[in-house]
């Protein structure tokens, strides 16, 4: 992480390591952040734990993350002609990639009683943002745009929603990209139909959408009780210290994906 952003990111990381999810003060403290990713000098690549301290030259890339909070409210402001409240609109419209978080606890059991699911507003807001992005780019702009869907809280997904979508409890592994795409699409086609239609529409002018990639985030938690919110559960690591119990494989694969996008950009 960039030195300038170290304090903010360390604070939220320390909150997780002390068992709490980031509080509102910590959330407000972060609007954008820079990461520098690369490989340690190793023949085995980023997924290997056997690596030396030295960075391998020519493999690093810098990434600028921009957080767009309360998307619904931001898009209402934008549609009424105001600029976005917290971030530079240009950063958003000229972005190379977008991480679209899908709160897995809100994936609905779409059916006769609930034909549109529970993400209708979010779906509309994401679609509007993609439309704005498309309009802001010159026709035939060669720059590709990379949509990335990240299913957050996937450990707490409603199992009935998975049954209804006719998919297994556990998504295919990070390397099984075709199976993984089919798995994710079974959920997104019913929960974010407008967003998916936008991204997969071949007729779209002005922006070249790369095939989306899909990741699934899990953090082990102790369930909330009457008096306590969800707590992050920690594990004893090999070295005797405490470690977060989360889907590290997914995050490493995502970092690798972002590094590839950055080197092509």
């Amino acid at each position: 992480v960039d030195l300038a952003s170290m304090e903010e990111i360390s604070e939220v990381f320390q909150q997780l390591m002390s068992g709490s999810f980031p509080d509102s003060a910590a959330k407000e403290g972060i609007s954008d952040i820079n990461f520098h990713v690369g490989y340690r000098r190793s023949r085995l690549g980023i997924l290997s734990r056997r690596r030396s301290k030295a960075w391998s030259p020519d493999t690093s890339a810098s990434l600028h993350f921009v957080l767009l909070r309360n998307l619904d409210a931001e898009m209402s402001r934008f549609r009424s002609g105001s600029s976005l409240a917290n971030v530079n609109l240009r950063d958003v419209l000229e972005s190379d990639a977008m991480v679209i978080l899908v709160d897995s606890t809100r994936l609905a059991v779409v059916g006769e009683e609930n034909p549109h699911g529970t993400m209708t507003n979010y779906d509309g807001a994401v679609e509007s943002l993609l439309t704005a992005l498309q309009r802001s780019r010159a026709r035939g702009d060669p720059k590709r745009f990379h949509p990335i869907f990240l299913f957050s809280k996937f450990d707490s997904v409603n199992k009935k929603a998975l049954r209804r979508a006719k998919i297994e409890d556990v998504p295919p592994g990070v390397r099984e990209t075709t199976l993984r795409a089919a798995y994710a699409r079974a959920l997104l086609d019913t929960n974010l139909p407008k967003t998916i239609a936008k991204i997969t529409n071949r007729e779209v002018q002005g922006v070249r959408f790369a095939p989306p990639s899909y990741f699934f985030s899990r953090v082990a938690t102790e369930a909330a009780t009457e008096n306590l919110r969800d707590r992050v559960r920690l594990l004893r690591g090999d070295d005797g210290g405490w470690e977060l119990d989360y889907s590290a494989d997914e995050y490493l694969a995502l970092l690798e994906r972002l590094r590839t996008i950055a080197t092509e950009a």
Binding site: P22, I30, V66, D96, Y251, I261
Partner: peptide, 26 residues
Amino acid sequence: MPHIVIIGDRDSGKTTFLALLYAAQV
């Protein structure tokens, strides 16, 4: 430097996502 926008509904885990991305790096 490439720009990556993170979007999500309220309490969908945007900040936790960044913290875990950081955790995966170190």
